[in-house]
Amino acid sequence: MGYNWYFQIVWDYREVFFRGAEVTAELTIGALAISLSLGLALGLCRSSRVGFVRWPAALYVELFRSTPILVQLVWIYYALPILSGVQMGNVLSAAVGIGLHSAAYVAEIFRAGIKSIERGQMDAAKSIGMRYSAAMRRIILPQAVRRMIPPFINEFATLIKLTTLGSVLAVNELLHESENLINNTYRPLEVYTALAIVFAVIIFPFIYLSQRLERYWRVRG
């Protein structure tokens, strides 16, 4: 343990971290927008009574859950342009890739939330003459969303962590900026340690909040 820590270096190059954090935030917001909107749509489709609505959504979810996200990212960045002729930049590719991946998990959270509402609620809504869509909107979803919030927050924390994978597409997010910095300073221990702490500080509050909410709502029904 004779290593001489030199954390001053992190402070000296703080600009690099801020820059990286900005890109990480961009990636997070972009991926989150895709993940939530697509995930909600997929989750609703998976809860549908109609087979040809349900099956494609199920296929999507299983496909994205059973392949590594790294493979999905490089596929979108390198293979998709060849097939489609559309070349997205590396930041957009990473955001789309992470968003598409996370959407599969959001869809599952959404479906599980809807499924967790007792069947009697839909029965009661129908029995007073509500149509399926109205029953979903006014009776099922408002109850389900509450149960979905804690797992959603967890998924959000996961998504922030996944943005580090942008580094393989040379996106200048936190991890990639850190690696650049190490190449200049030869101080991997300080830089990686600082990076880990930065992520922990960002993510821990969300995980804590999720656990608190879960406990709070378990008690209050």
């Binding site: 009697g120 029965d123 809504a125 029995s127 007073i128 003459g129 509500m130 109850q143």
Partner: peptide, 20 residues
């Protein structure tokens, strides 16, 4: 179907009130 259902009332063993 909903229009016809609306003309009948149903009361369940487990009440099924909307808890929210």
């Amino acid at each position: 179907v909903s229009r016809v259902r609306a003309r009948m009332g149903m009361v369940f063993q487990s009440f099924n009130l909307f808890p929210h």
